[in-house]
Amino acid sequence: MNPQVSDRDREQLSALLDSHLPEKERTELERRIAINPELQKEWKQLQRLKAALRSLPRHKIRRSYTLSPGSVPVRKTSPFLLPLRLVSGLASAALVILLAFDATVIMRSVSIGAAAPAAASEAMMAERAADQNTGEIIQWVTPTLEIFGKGGGPPPSTDENSTNMAVPAEPQFEAPLYAEPPTAESQVSNAPPSEPPAEATPEAFAEDSPILGIPAPEDQGKVLEYELKDAVSQTASNQVFRPAAEIFLLLLAISTAVTAVVLGRRK
């Protein structure tokens, strides 16, 4: 070993021999070889060594190394391999589609849930702005006779003296939702009107109200019942069918894939 030549120099010389040195390093090393006799000696020895190794004769083989059917187990492809792979692929694809659909539904419900308060707030602000002109908020109590009737609770009393909610609605006056110091004007206008507006019948209001947009009282219970029935049956079938289908597809995909791998590896 030459102490004047470092391991780094030797590694660079070796790389230079195989033309594996970056251009900048190569130029620098060649410059150093030209002025450093020790490096020059190492470089020439390395070149001779490589020439000697390259000059070694290649030996011809005395026998062939080809394999005979007896020397190795013959690899037979199972006829079930292709159908298994196909089923596995289809099941995986169906599972992915189903999961993607579920994810979309969840995402949509989340986005609706997030947007709803903002929309409600905006609507409320708009209403408030409109009401500020009159300075009052009128909320009609919806007649709910039919709903109660269908709801399974005690039948409403028909007694006229009773204070049941089935009594035809009267406009009720409430303070604005957002408390502000009452002005003289608003205090005046907050006084209950002597009569409800002529057009403010429950039926008419129900048609116009976005919040209480319920059909005619005689239809309310029916509609609610049908909608509930549909919604409940649909939700129930979704809750049972979809996870079951997903689990089935998952198991099918895994079992067929594992079987295909096992069959493929069998020698």
């Binding site: 070993m1 391991d7 030797r10 790389a15 594996h20 020895q45 060594l49 490589k50």
Partner: peptide, 16 residues
């Protein structure tokens, strides 16, 4: 590989 080859070559040279 590069460093191993360099070291192998110089060991071989020393032996030869």
């Amino acid at each position: 590989i590069k460093s191993r080859l360099a070291r192998a070559r110089f060991k071989l040279r020393d032996c030869l």
